[in-house]
Design a protein around this nucleic acid. Sequence first.
RNA 1: GCGGCGUUAGCUCAGUGGUAGAGCGGCUGCUUUACACGCAGUUGGUCGGGGGUUCGAAUCCCUCACGCCGCACCA
Length: 1268
Amino acid sequence: MPELDKTYTPADVESRWYQRWLDDKCFEADPARVSETRPAYSIVIPPPNVTGVLHMGHVLNNTIQDILCRRARMLGKEVLWLPGTDHAGLATQNVVEKTLKKQGVIKHRDDLGREKLIEKIWEWKGTQGDIIIDQLKKLGSSCDWSRQRFTFDPDYNACVMRVFVDLYKKGLIYRGKRMVNWCPSSLTALSDEEVIMKEQKGSMYHFRVEVIDDDTRPQTARPRAVDITEQEEQNAHHEHTRTDPHTGCRTFIHGNRFDERAGPYLSAANRRTVGAAAACLAQSQRTGADAPSGESRREEFRALLATGQFRELNLIDLAQIGIRAFGDEPLAAADESLKQLKAGAEAQPFLDHARGVVYKIFASDASGNAGRKVTVSTSPTARPYIEYEDSHPLEALEKLALLHEIGGLPTEILGVTAQGDWVLAQPEATPVTESEIGAARAEAVALVGGVQVNESGLEDIRVVWHRGRAWIISDLHLRNIMRDSEGKARIMDALIVPVPKSLTARYESVRQAIREAKEKAGILSSATHAQEELSLFPSADRKTWLTIATTRPETIPGDTAIAVNPKDERYAHLIGKHIRRPLPLENQAAIPIVGDEHVDFAFGTGVLKVTPAHDKADFEIGQRHKLEIIDVLHPNGLLNELAGKDLAGLDRFEGRKKAVDLLTEMGAMIKAEPHQNNVGYSERADVPIEPRLSEQWFLKYPSVKESQAVVASGEMKFHPDRWAKVYDHWMTGLQDWCISRQVWWGHRIPVWHAMAKDSDELRAFSEFSNKTGLSKSDSWTEHCLSGVKGEATLVTVYQNNDEGETRIEAVTDSEAEIEKLKSMGFTQDPDVLDTWFSSWLWPFATMGWPEKTSTLKAFYPTTDLVTGPDIIFFWVARMIMAGFEWMGELPFKNVYFTGIIRDKQGRKMSKSLGNSPDPLELIASYSADALRFGIMRSAPLGQDICFDDKNVELGRNFCTKLWNAARFRQMQGGEVETEISAALLSSDDKWILLRLNTAIAEVSAALEEYRFSDATATLYRFFWSEYCDWYIEASKAVLQGSDAKRKANTLAVIDFVLGHTLRLFHPFMPFITEELWHGMGFNTDLPENQGGKSIMFAPWPKPLDEDELAHFGILPEDEKTANDKYEAVNLGRGLKSTFNINKRVRFVLKPSQELPAHEVEVLRILLNAEPLDVDADFAATKGTPSAITPLGTIFLPLDGIIDVEAERARVGKELAKVESELEKVIAKLADENFTSKVPQKVLDEHQLRKTDWQEKLAKLREMMAALG
RNA sequence: GCGGCGUUAGCUCAGUGGUAGAGCGGCUGCUUUACACGCAGUUGGUCGGGGGUUCGAAUCCCUCACGCCGCACCA
């Protein structure tokens, strides 16, 4: 037997074996070898990016593939693991361009031009590309490198061209001017899958636009209100761009007419309503110029909300917010705040029809601010509530919005009628009885303390019960006017929401009464306000304004319409009118108001600006209404001249700021509030993408039905199968795939154009005919232009493109045809294809398609695919479709999705975080085997992996252990792998053979089900805990003994187990197992293809079958014999440890059964006893520590150092535990409920347990008694 | 919003109805002839909360909370 080095040197071993495997062509697949008895097994590698370097994800992915392949080889399959790399268009071009720039070779790619740059990239690929291939080899990957492919290989390119032409002919590829995801950094279109949504904290800008009747009216540079100075108005607007920084709540204010410090600011329009003006002034005076900013109150309000007690709000008048306290103590929650206010309060109760008893308390708040009013009232839902009046209507509305937006609030604002009525729904309100109302009223009265009730107040709110809900109908609407508690009229802003006509009609009389009351008070009735004024803010000159919310004000110059929902009663009547687009300043064009169902009237203001050139949804609206498309952006994201002179040349984000400034200056800006929305980012360039209208090539996915069905039916299996759902979902909502990219490195689109300058189709065609000799009727058919037999071009004539030309489009993948086209003046489409458009052909294009190669025949469809779930759409789904489309068959039978590798903190590994260890460094310091074992051990099925170097360290330790165990065997000398004699098998031998059987079965089953971490766990347990810790230690009894026959037999068992273990380990740790396989001489005498050449072809271990077990005389109960012994050892060791004995000492065993001398010797060695006396009549000195074992009682005689108390304590502790366990079992067995219902098996188990505990208890009691 | 995954020992994770586990870490002891990258012993858990089904629940059902990941999105 050759001698193993004292230490394992992985670096030498790994490079030596890998080279040897390559030299011996161990990885090369031969289709000719495939037969019925030697089935094919194949995997195509997910081709890494040619610029890529190995990261942990690759390690995980490729280790799994290698394990699958190596095991398949051992199972006697013909294995093809087909490797290669991906040309990765954008990424590679970027890398090379950057390198060239760094080297100072170029400043811009145009310096080189297309052809030269591509040359440079090829050059780069030749010298620096494919680094990852060498790295994969370091990992031990057993790929068939002789078949390595690159997606840009000439024959692969031919496949891509062929596929394009085929799809084109099938009518699935088309060119279209559509909205695409445009990357302003890479200057190319991207597919939807390459865009990732990121949450953004931006602003929602509200600005107003002027409604005009038609587009013929003269334009005015800026809207202007009468009776106010420019400065005043600007101030007013400025005030109201303020938003709540904490909540970002919307205010619903359309009017924008209040100055918080100075009180209501009156526009001319408001002055029209005389009473209102007075009211405004009155309130202003009452609250005073130094009225609190509202901030302190806001805080308090938030605090109340946070208690969760205030769940419902009720708008009484627009300056008030009512809060109802629900719960067992209706008012207790509000009590605290109320107490503060009560001091010196003046309460004014009155009866309100809608609200029951209302008490209005006027008070100063804690900080002495005047003008605070609190209303306590009963509600129609029989819950008393408290209302806070704010010094300012605006503030109240802000709170309303705040409440409205807090999840779980039962009050919803539903909408507004044409009359301006609005409806609050209270979905959680429960209808109440008269008596409940009465009780609530009484509570409220009691609270404020016996105040007299008077009737007063305006009948401004009604509650009706409808469909089981309480509906509040109010006459309030925009500029609604009411009396306040002092009897003075006030003007309020309002929420506008529709109410069902049927409902409002029933309350016509109520409204009539209100109107009369208001007229009597000299207040304009809401009825006099015409419909068109609703929701709009009319100014003195009767201009009407619409408020629009947007996140992208820089695109206003590209707006070509305003859209409202035709069902939205607020705005429906405006459809057909126009608005004045505020930007660009020099071109404030009139653009139409269109009705479109797309508009969500619950969102924002319900008015949408339509920018067809810069938003997907807007584009569609534009199509529906035949709107003009104005593109205001350059491809690189700078605003162009169409954006106006103020914005042109600015970056889109700079432009945004500038646009806001412009709107503010002209007084159109109402406010900017914090707004969170999701913005699409280019995954690669990490910049926000720009929806951009451009001419691109699109593909309608082929073979969708089959592809969806194959997974749904389970014919193709996903592991874990939850990904099947994700796949199915995506396949259900497929969007056409934008396949063209505006880069140079890629498969160039095989489409050739000739432009006929004439827009007249016939004349254009005759021009074409002169060149080709084809007639017009030949359009859309294939022709051979070159005259070369079998070659063809598909010719299509498109009339009238944007430039008024006629385009002749020729599509072919034939070189002869291309030459001819070139000579005829055709030019090729400049775009290249999406990289995924080539990699979706990977499973068959790498195998020689379209030829019917023997490789394809033998290895397609492939068996397994191992990849990450992040490319399920990019790659997996598309490969399935391509497989069906061109091979008529699924491309693989199983897909295993790995998890994502995270760091110790659970963060995704990334370059920018720098938290990704370099696998090559790990290999250098721990070995590839260690890395492989470590990562597999921590990779449960499809779960993300928290990666820690500790795992690799553990892998390294495991390798060392394996190495040393092998060395131990070798040091024993003797022949390798001799016959095992059944007669000489010890209980330990039988035990380890049974454990090996279990391990083989477990590992095989785990691998069948892709449970790699389970497999490694079994390997670890079996080899370390069972084989090394117990079996080898027990074997020392024989190996150190003098019985040569037994010794030889034990070595035979050890060899048997090691030989199986190495094979079981090989897929996980290929290098060290190969080294030991040869180093230990397991390869000798084996046929070349059965492990003689390499362990990778040795047969995969099989458990001993029944016959073999019988032959060796191994029974299932043999496992127990050894287990009993090991338990006795554990207990004996425990004794030693308890009494702090760390020397070799004497043990005495008082056996409960006869023990062969060999077993005693094993016991002695495992216990490290010197000596171990077996004495059936042993009478221990009082206080001698002992333990009850399955083999009898073990004593640890401690002459002179007996500590009776310590031993009593120890036994006592154990006694207590046994007693409690026994008690549990007895109780269970005594319970008839249990015994009558439980299956017999469980009952037996419990019975047995009971007997065991009882026996133990008896013995422990004996021991206790012995201790005195 | 819709969907998925997860929550078990200090950490990483097994455990799909019947006596709560592994590795790492911690602590104690041991240089014992394969291995200190080792050996022996030992300490860690009301299995996220609540409810239900059951003789019995970490496991099945409901619900809530938290975390992660997709998808869809509203200007």
